[in-house]
């Protein structure tokens, strides 16, 4: 690590990325990397700057500062980018009068991909027949699948998907999960944005959370869960705490008189309590509430909601452009 190693060919790197629209800062000094072979969730409330960030990565929006690169190169510098990066930005971006299949054929022509591949991709996302109808009548789920087919057209190593689960029914979400897991298992880099952690919780390996255009947290899903713990209710918390300390297990009293034990070994806790002669009323593994954590991380900061004490800022109107993902 003495000299900077070349970036892996399919690593996505955001470096001090900022974007201002007039005096409104949509994205501020964002730095993180997205690794190959993993599904990374890019999370934040609506209007947090997710779409703007992804559009900067894809060369659609010019960053005010910083860089966003794929394998060390900016999107615009990649020859025939559809073969390197597949992306699905908004599921509404189809001409209503053009069939889904023709939409893909238009893209295929631009990337010099044979038309045969178009039909293969439609088979893969399971809409081969419907894709011959005009896109105006498609359901949200079909649009998402068509968007995914478009993203996969060039068999890219990197996938960038903006809210791919939006508008999918539970069955569709499950299908998408398996699909993305399979793609990541092939060693592809997958970046998926969502405004709902619960939507992607079981899909992603890594998470990057932003709020108001700034990085709030990034790490693996396990990091987010934090160390495991158990909740114990007993008639004598301090005695149990002492006994647990002897057994080399840390615990804390909670305000309502229970003990929070820093272990996921429930049996050990029970055995220690029996030896100490304290009765246990309740013993349960503590699962951290990710949704709650997500909310706390981004809570009270959503610039789009405003509140009674601050007048709405003029710049907020800009975020109206983000509305496309709220369909």
């Amino acid at each position: 690590m003495t000299t900077a190693p070349p970036a892996p060919p399919s690593q996505i790197e955001f470096h001090n990325l900022s974007k201002r629209f007039g005096d409104f800062t949509a994205v501020r000094d964002l730095t993180f990397t997205v690794e190959p072979g993993r599904v990374t969730g890019f999370l934040g409330p609506n209007g947090a700057g997710k779409t703007t960030t992804l559009r900067m990565l894809l060369g659609l929006i010019r960053p005010s500062e910083g860089t966003a690169t794929i394998g060390g190169r900016q999107y615009g510098a990649i020859a025939n980018p559809l073969r390197v990066v597949g992306s699905a930005l908004e599921a509404t971006n189809f001409h209503p009068g053009r069939s889904g299949r023709d939409h893909l054929r238009v893209l295929a022509a631009a990337a010099e991909i044979p038309d045969k591949r178009v039909d293969e991709m439609l088979e893969l996302v399971a809409i081969p027949a419907a894709a011959r109808k005009r896109a105006g009548g498609y359901s949200m789920g079909m649009r998402q699948r068509l968007g995914l087919a478009a993203a996969l057209l060039g068999d890219p190593q990197v996938l960038v998907l903006d809210e791919p689960a939006n508008g999918l029914d539970p069955e569709g979400i499950r299908w998408l999960r398996g699909f993305l897991r399979g793609l990541a298992a092939d060693g592809r880099t997958i970046l998926v944005s969502s405004h709902m952690l619960s939507e992607v919780e079981q899909t992603v390996d890594d998470v990057v959370i932003i709020s108001n255009g700034q990085l709030v947290k990034s790490g693996t899903m396990a990091d987010l869960h934090g160390p495991s713990s158990a909740l114990v209710r007993t008639s004598d918390p301090s005695r149990l705490a002492g006994a647990l300390r002897v057994a080399d297990v840390t615990s804390h009293a909670t305000p309502d008189g229970a003990l929070l034990v820093e272990t996921d070994d429930l049996r050990l806790v029970g055995d220690v309590a029996l030896r100490a002669g304290v009765p246990i009323w309740q013993l349960q593994a503590q699962v951290s509430d990710l949704e709650d954590m997500f909310f706390r991380l981004t809570e009270g900061q959503n610039r789009n909601l405003g509140d009674a004490t601050t007048a709405p800022r003029a710049g907020d109107a800009i975020m109206g452009r983000d509305g496309g993902n709220e369909k």
């Binding site: 894809l58 060369g59 980018p81 992306s87 001409h95 631009a110 478009a150």
Partner: peptide, 14 residues
């Protein structure tokens, strides 16, 4: 109007 310009610029960034 139909925002297909996004797909156009993604397939041909120049």
């Amino acid at each position: 109007r139909h925002k297909t310009i996004t797909a156009t610029f993604l397939s041909t960034p120049n």
